[in-house]
Design a protein around this nucleic acid. Structure first.
Length: 500
RNA sequence: GCGCCUCUAGCUCAACGGCAGAGCAAUGGACUCUUAAUCCACAGGUUGGGGGUUCGAAUCCCCCGGGGCGCACCA
């Protein structure tokens, strides 16, 4: 960006026009130039907050400058009204011909034009808080017609592709995306208050790891090497615990090369945190407290409505073992110890297809996901997963074949995934090698051996609890949205066809 | 990837085998307290694209493209 010239002397009008005076409109009338800068000194939200409840016909004597988009216009002969939206809210413009410079041009502004207005704050005879137009400036003409002022945009394709229009005309879109912003901000503050340090780790990974997922592949020319967009920050964050940061977190984008749906976008935002000296029980308490805090701050209560159904996020959340939940749902008591033929038979009964080489843990998890996960309204902490499907989690302190892992299920969906982290480098290498065998056998989502991560564990990772929360899904819950695309500013879509 | 639905004016929608229409927006006009202002006038289209059936296709059939929902996969 070029250097910005110093502002004019303090007594100069900051909003004086400055530009090409020779510009003309199509019909040959001279058109005032578009200024290079503008200084609004009030917003619609602040004006409403400070002047609400004035008697009709009040003149406050206060002159303000506001700027935004003209959303509505009501011209009535020698008097015009406008509705200006400045992003904070809406404020009425009151424009009598007598006080409004260039009145004829003002009444011909297009809906969607950006304008700046200076004038006295007043109320009309009907009591509507307004800014009288004593001066105004066109800041950007719109060259495209705005959507219907009443119906707005309903075509979801257009809403997602042209979010710059949607945000003006769809109040709900703005509400949800502001809620998202506040949620991320509140999360940061809450974690920082608990001595967590925010870090940024690589998005380009030489070895994809930290989750079971298909990565995007890219190539670095100078290094002449393939790199992967990260599927999870997990392994880097635990390296940082080894490196002497006992409480770290990262809120960032991860990428998974899988299908799209109302619950899946190829890139999404994950919160991951790691806390030294903690186990998964500590992380459960942290999770329910964080989510309850966000619900209270953003929704005013921990008892929400999601999709028309009550959702009570008040801690403590239920804790239940995975196998017990499957039994609750299906009436079938399954265990990792029973003969694998019985597990296979159970899978077949529920029409769950499992790979031929799947062990009991994989089969049990598949049955759980097919029969139980989506049925649980929650919130519930599903605890104690099979080790076979949890290559980064520490073995259960009491139950052989299981690990200390939980997923938080809310509204039938996974909101969080966490465990007591595996700290033993020997065990970790063995788990990686087992994963690598599965990958060689054709499992595209299996992990590969990350030698450097094992080396880091060899230097010593203390007992550590880790957590991953899908921020998009959390926003969906708190904003009562059923599609992930509605909580993303620019969801991934097929590229627009040329010329369409 | 598979199945179902959908695409008509800038926007929101009608017309469902027989002349492509309305509201809002736009354009011109009337109107000094409106609130989606109102009233009068006027303009606006390769009915997503291509092919077929038919005397006649927005409408029925096929192919292609975009989107939505469901399934599959995942978080």
């Amino acid at each position: 960006m070029p250097d910005v010239p110093a502002p004019d002397a303090p007594d100069a009008d900051p909003n004086a026009l400055d530009g090409d005076p020779a510009a003309t409109s199509d019909d040959g009338d001279p058109t005032p130039p578009i200024p290079y800068r503008y200084e609004p000194d009030a917003t619609a939200a602040v004006l409403h907050a400070e002047h609400d409840g004035l008697e009709p016909g009040t003149e406050t004597g206060r002159t303000v400058t506001v700027a935004g988009r003209l959303m509505l216009r009501r011209v009535q002969g020698k008097l015009a009204f406008g509705t200006l939206d400045d992003g904070s809210g809406r404020i009425q413009l009151f424009a009598p011909k007598a006080s409004t410079p260039d009145f004829e041009r003002f009444t011909h502004l297009a809906i969607g034009d950006w304008i700046g207005v200076t004038g006295e704050v007043m109320t009309t005879r009907r009591g509507e808080l307004s800014v009288r137009v004593d001066g105004w400036t066109l800041l950007a003409p719109t060259r495209r017609q705005f959507p219907d002022k009443w119906h707005g945009l309903t075509d979801t394709d257009v809403r997602y592709r042209q979010r710059y229009v949607d945000l003006w005309v769809t109040e709900e879109a703005r509400r949800v995306l502001l809620l998202r912003s506040r949620l991320v901000s509140l999360t940061r503050r809450w974690l920082e208050d608990r001595d967590f340090v925010e870090v940024e780790t690589p998005l380009l990974h030489p070895i994809p790891g930290g989750a079971l997922a298909k990565p995007f592949t890219t190539h670095h020319n100078a290094l002449d090497t393939d790199l992967y967009l990260r599927i999870a920050p997990e392994l880097y964050l635990k390296r940082l615990v080894v490196g002497g940061f006992p409480r770290v977190f990262e809120i960032g984008r991860v990428f998974r090369n899988e299908g799209l749906s109302t619950r899946h976008n190829p890139e999404f935002t994950m919160l991951e945190l790691y806390q030294a000296y903690a186990d998964y029980g500590d992380i459960m308490r942290l999770t329910e407290e964080l989510v309850a805090h966000l619900a209270r701050e953003l929704c005013g209560t921990t008892v929400l409505t999601y999709g028309g159904r009550e959702l009570d996020l008040t801690p403590p959340w239920r804790r239940a073992r995975l196998a017990d939940l499957v039994e609750e749902q299906t009436g079938l008591a399954l265990s990792l110890d029973q003969p694998i033929e019985e597990l296979r038979a159970a899978a077949a009964e529920f029409e769950v297809t499992v790979p031929d080489d799947a062990g009991p843990g994989k089969i049990l998890l598949e049955i759980y996901e097919k029969t139980t996960e989506g049925e649980m309204w929650g919130p519930v902490f599903v605890i104690d997963y099979p080790q076979e499907v949890s290559p980064l989690a520490r073995p259960h302190r009491e139950r052989a074949g299981e690990v200390e892992r939980f997923e938080a299920i809310v509204a039938g969906r996974e909101l969080a995934n966490a465990f007591s982290e595996l700290t033993d480098p020997v065990d970790q290498r063995a788990r990686f090698e087992d994963q690598a065998r599965q990958k060689d056998a054709g499992d595209e989502e299996a992990m590969v051996v990350d030698d450097d991560y094992v080396r880091a564990l060899e230097y010593g990772l203390p007992p550590t609890g880790g957590l991953g929360i899908g921020i998009d899904r959390l926003v969906m819950l708190l904003a009562d949205q059923s599609s992930i695309r509605d909580v993303l500013l620019f969801p991934t879509l097929r590229p627009e066809a040329p010329g369409s």
